[in-house]
Amino acid sequence: MNIAVELDDISQSELLNVSEAGPAPKRIVAGFGFWIFLLSDIVMFSALFATYAVLAKATAGGPTGAQLFDLRNVAIETAILLLSSYSCGLMSLAVDSRHHLGTAIAAAVTFLLGAAFLMLELREFQGMIALGAAPQRSAFLSAFFTLVGCHGLHVAIGLGWLVLMMVQLSIRGYQPVVVRRLHCFSLFWHALDIIWVLIFTIVYLMGVLP
């Protein structure tokens, strides 16, 4: 009986602490808000994925995915984006420990790998269009260019954001607001890698299956 009463007291005092703690710190609220944005972005991508999955066989007599996709190129793109995600993680570690040189190097590596990914993707698009596989050729190609191009656009925006953050960091230093934005950027960059996992699986790997 006594034990039960004691347990009751403990849980009540804990509840009191929680309610007295006030609103969550800004860094948690900011992370949560950005996470909501990322999820809404993923929901938008899910609509593009659904469109692609419905139209994947609608080639209208034009080239199919199996004829167009070069899996070696896709493997290189995947490796580059994964390494870029890793170096972005190292950048947020360097930011946490206020390591200036580490932050700069990791940011530069992240930027270069992201730019290399974007270049490979644009070259792939160029090659496809040169072969006559432009977005207007078939519903399949429209869906393909919309889905993969939208991911590429996100990567391009991320690169611009990274440059902006490096400029802010050099001007304002490690102010809390700058550190928060850098963490939001790393969340964005990692989320792009998650979407790329789906793209290389659903579009490329499943696209070349017989």
Binding site: I28, G31, Y86, L90, R98, H183, L187
Partner: peptide, 25 residues
């Protein structure tokens, strides 16, 4: 949480713990 600072300040944390998480991933 994502975007949150680590519970332990960077000065008291071993530099390798975060690196280990990312490398495992």
């Amino acid at each position: 949480a994502p975007g949150d600072l680590p519970a332990i300040p960077a000065s008291e944390r071993k530099a390798s713990s975060g690196l280990l998480v990312y490398t495992t991933g």
